[in-house]
């Protein structure tokens, strides 16, 4: 039985969390749950949770809870769609990835070894957040896990590929940021004129390729 916790968040929202230990498994459960919840509640999947928002005048709290519990009983994360595979070409190191050498040093790797591990296999988009179109991709193996930089940068260039907190991400636009910048891509991750606006969606698998 998958452990879930339903936390009321104000009078018009619920945060439904999967408390399984393993991040990848908890995320698969959260993505599967987001697929089966009513669209009118705008289910928002994140690392290990789904936020829903509802109108308490239309949907009574107890009824929302009951529907969520029925949805939880019915989900099958094993049946989670494989997700699209998206290839992201990256220029690693140098001006494109100013933190590559330092990050490799901290991890006890040669820069080439870090690149080899980063490109070793496709990894899952766990969620989109922080900024429009910003993918949290992972989880990364322990050998690539670093805490965030002590001092965040005020402006990280658009397209920067970065690692921190056991995940890898891509800055869709120039943003402040505290992750370690290891490379850069020219792929456009977010375009508000596009529908959907984000290139990547939770559940997609990203394969980084060194160019």
């Amino acid at each position: 039985m998958t452990p879930w916790r339903i936390c009321p968040m104000g009078e018009a929202a619920l945060l439904i969390e999967c408390t399984l230990n393993d991040v990848a498994t908890a995320n698969a459960h959260a993505l599967a749950l987001a697929e089966v919840l009513p669209a009118e509640w705008r289910p928002l999947p994140a690392i290990r949770s789904v936020l829903i928002r509802f109108d308490p005048l239309r949907d009574a709290y107890d009824e929302v809870q009951a529907r969520v519990r029925r949805a939880l009983a019915g989900i099958a994360p094993d049946a989670l769609p494989a997700g699209r595979q998206v290839t992201i070409p990256v220029r690693y190191g140098g001006e494109h990835g100013p933190d590559l050498e330092d990050a490799a040093h901290r991890l006890g790797l040669a820069p080439d070894e870090l690149i080899a591990q980063h490109t070793a296999q496709p990894r899952r988009v766990l969620m989109i957040g922080f900024a429009p179109g910003f993918p949290y991709i992972g989880p990364l193996p322990a050998s690539l896990t670093l805490p965030r930089r002590a001092t965040p940068r005020a402006a990280v260039p658009a397209g920067s590929v970065a690692i921190a907190a056991g995940m890898t991400g891509i800055y869709p636009s120039q943003l402040p940021g505290g992750w370690h910048l290891i490379g850069r891509t020219e792929v456009v991750l977010f375009d508000p004129a596009r529908e959907p606006p984000a290139l990547l969606q939770p559940g997609d698998r990203v394969q980084f390729v060194a160019t």
Partner: peptide
């Protein structure tokens, strides 16, 4: 925390 959904008012 692992990032989770928030909204105006939180």
């Amino acid at each position: 925390l692992p990032s989770f959904g928030v909204f105006p008012g939180a």
